[in-house]
Computed example of a mutant assay.
Amino acid sequence: MNEFYTQLITVFLGFFAIMNPIANTAAFAGLVGDSDRKEQIQIAAKALILTFCIIFAFSLLGKAIFHLFGITLPALRISGGILVFLVGYHMLNGKSSTLHSADGNDVKDIAVSPLAVPLLAGPGTIATAMNYSASGGITGIGITVSVFAVLCVITFICFIFSAKILKFIGKGGLDIVTRLMGLILTVIGVQMLIGGVTEVIKTLPMS
Rank of each mutant, 00 (worst) to 15 (best):
L119Q: 03
Y89A: 10
I188R: 03
T186S: 15
A116F: 03
S96M: 07
V147C: 01
T198I: 05
P21C: 11
T186E: 14
K38C: 00
V11S: 02
Q191V: 01
G81C: 05
R179V: 10
L92W: 15
K46E: 03
Y132S: 03
L166I: 14
F156C: 01
S79A: 15
H67P: 00
L185W: 12
G195Q: 12
G170L: 04
R77T: 01
T139N: 07
C158A: 04
N131H: 07
T128C: 06
N2T: 09
I143Q: 08
D103G: 12
L48M: 05
F52Y: 12
A121K: 06
I141H: 05
G196P: 08
D109E: 03
Q191N: 15
A116N: 06
F66W: 06
F161E: 00
L61Q: 12
G122L: 02
L73P: 09
T203A: 08
G172R: 09
L73R: 12
T155H: 06
T155M: 05
N105K: 07
T10M: 06
D106V: 01
A127K: 10
V87R: 03
T203C: 08
V147D: 04
F52D: 07
K164R: 11
I188M: 12
H90T: 11
F159P: 00
V190Y: 13
G80Q: 05
I188S: 02
I65L: 14
T155A: 11
V200E: 14
A57N: 08
C158S: 08
V107T: 06
K46P: 00
I194H: 06
K63Y: 06
I82W: 04
T198W: 02
G196F: 09
S113Y: 00
L193V: 04
L73S: 13
T98A: 10
V84W: 04
I165N: 01
A127C: 05
I143R: 06
I55C: 06
G124Q: 00
S162V: 02
V32E: 05
L166E: 04
N24Y: 02
I49T: 14
